[in-house]
Structure formats: structure tokens, C-alpha cells
Simulated assay, not measured.
Amino acid sequence: MKVRRALDACGRTYADEAGIKLRDAPAPLYQLLVLAVLLSARIKADIAVAAARELFAAGCTTPEKTVDTTWQQRVDALGRGHYVRYDESTATTLGDGARLLLDKYGGDLRRMRKAADGDPRKLHRLLTEVKGIGPTGADIFCREVQAVWPEVRPHFDKKTLSGARELRLPEDPEKLAGMVPDDQMARFAAALVRVTLDRKLAEELRSAA
């Protein structure tokens, strides 16, 4: 089955790759948001993931701790992850985003979730109020957070639907959602994104059909 092959071959979430043990708690949710900021740039996903790991190692694991780091410490961490084209602007962005989260939500994204009141579209909009998170970043966050926030399911955005098209699967979010258990939806979305980004992988999965 195409879906099982895709999950087995490339169904690892980006949060997992970045070392984030995602659960409904302030620190991992914030770390996912940082990862979404990094993945939003026009830079390879593996570099964004490496940069996220370096930021977390430098102490940027919560909004409070991010604010406690210096701009230069964030620049240096991004540099160690080879996130060099956007290191200075992203260091500023992360500091500004952390301050907004502290001021508006007490540093806890679960309060943003509560403010969205179960409406995925409202959550998407609230996410874009955070510096560095545009529609693309909000999609990245929602794709991954659906693993722990059920009301976001199913979240299959344009990039995931492009992967579905590559594998000749339905390009309808509800139909895609019916192909996997709820607890596998984030992994399935990640797999479809990886298919979109890797033409060789898409060809291998198609040829195995």
C-alpha cells in the first residue's frame, strides 16, 4: 500500500528529527514554533533542523530562556547549524517572537490554542501574529502539532497535497485523513512534504506501487 510505504520510508516528523519530544506542554510547543520559523525560510530542511538543534543546545528552549540569550548567542548557534544566510535577521526575529509570546500568552502556546477556541483557521491566523511566522510557517506548525492537538486534524496544506499528487493519491484533505489513523496523521503529512521536496524519493515510491 502506497500510504504504508510512504510512512515507512519517510514518515518522520520534522519535530522528531530536530529532537523535539512533542507533547501538549509549553516547552516542546515553543520549540516546534522555533522550528517552523526556521523551516519557513528558503533554505534546505536539513539545515533548518540542524539550526534548531543548535538553538536548543544554546538554551532557546522556551520563550523565557530565548529572551535570556543574547542576540550574538543566537547568531552563533544559527551559524553552527550553517543557517548563515539568515542568521542575523533570524536571531532578531526569534527574540521578538519570544517577547510577543511572553507578553500575550505568558510564554505558553496552549493559551493561544485556548484563544482559538477549537477553530483551526483562527489558530492559523493567531500564529501569523508571531514574528517570523507567516502562512507557510503556520502551516508547518499545524502540520506537526496535529499530533497532539486533535482539533487541528486534518491539516494537509498545499505542500502535502503536492506530495499526494506525486504519489497519485487523492488531493482532498478529508480523503487523505481517512487513509491513516489519527495518531499517524502528522507523520503522513511529513511524509508527503518529503515526497514534494525529493523528486527521487517520489519516483522510488511510485515505482514500488
Rank of each mutant, 00 (worst) to 15 (best):
residue 52 A to Y: 07
residue 209 A to E: 15
residue 44 K to L: 14
residue 190 A to P: 02
residue 6 A to K: 02
residue 89 S to N: 09
residue 35 L to P: 01
residue 86 Y to E: 04
residue 175 K to N: 07
residue 7 L to P: 02
residue 144 E to L: 03
residue 186 A to N: 06
residue 179 M to W: 09
residue 126 L to G: 04
residue 202 A to E: 06
residue 165 R to G: 07
residue 152 V to F: 03
residue 62 T to D: 10
residue 72 Q to G: 08
residue 194 R to N: 12
residue 112 M to F: 09
residue 151 E to S: 12
residue 86 Y to M: 01
residue 9 A to D: 04
residue 41 A to R: 15
residue 63 P to T: 09
residue 10 C to L: 08
residue 181 P to D: 10
residue 136 T to E: 15
residue 89 S to Y: 07
residue 150 P to C: 10
residue 143 R to E: 03
residue 126 L to M: 14
residue 74 R to E: 02
residue 119 D to I: 07
residue 63 P to S: 11
residue 105 Y to R: 06
residue 146 Q to G: 00
residue 160 T to N: 02
residue 134 G to I: 15
residue 174 E to I: 13
residue 128 T to M: 08
residue 92 T to F: 00
residue 24 D to P: 05
residue 160 T to A: 11
residue 128 T to C: 06
residue 182 D to V: 10
residue 60 C to K: 04
residue 116 A to K: 07
residue 198 D to V: 10
residue 194 R to V: 08
residue 204 E to H: 09
residue 200 K to L: 13
residue 151 E to M: 13
residue 105 Y to F: 15
residue 114 K to T: 14
residue 97 G to P: 01
residue 147 A to G: 09
residue 15 A to K: 00
residue 27 A to N: 08
residue 27 A to W: 05
residue 80 R to T: 06
residue 26 P to I: 03
residue 3 V to G: 03
residue 40 S to D: 13
residue 188 F to P: 00
residue 20 I to N: 00
residue 85 R to S: 06
residue 72 Q to R: 14
residue 12 R to W: 10
residue 4 R to M: 07
residue 127 L to Q: 02
residue 198 D to P: 05
residue 45 A to N: 14
residue 79 G to M: 05
residue 199 R to V: 13
residue 91 A to E: 00
residue 116 A to T: 13
residue 120 P to C: 11
residue 54 E to Q: 15
residue 187 R to A: 13
residue 66 T to D: 08
residue 50 A to T: 12
residue 167 L to P: 05
residue 198 D to E: 14
residue 29 L to W: 04
residue 21 K to Y: 07
residue 181 P to G: 09
residue 125 R to M: 10
residue 178 G to Q: 09
residue 90 T to N: 02
residue 154 P to S: 08
residue 124 H to R: 10
residue 165 R to A: 12
residue 171 E to R: 14
residue 201 L to G: 01
residue 69 T to V: 13
residue 173 P to E: 08
residue 140 I to D: 00
residue 156 F to E: 01
residue 175 K to R: 15
residue 174 E to D: 14
residue 34 V to R: 00
residue 93 T to S: 03
residue 194 R to E: 09
residue 197 L to C: 09
residue 61 T to A: 09
residue 100 L to R: 03
residue 201 L to Y: 06
residue 77 A to M: 03
residue 72 Q to F: 12
residue 21 K to G: 08
residue 142 C to Y: 01
residue 55 L to K: 07
residue 47 I to H: 11
residue 165 R to T: 08
residue 140 I to P: 00
residue 82 H to S: 11
residue 30 Y to T: 05
residue 209 A to W: 11
residue 80 R to P: 02
residue 153 R to H: 09
residue 90 T to P: 00
residue 173 P to M: 12
residue 64 E to C: 11
residue 189 A to C: 10
residue 142 C to M: 15
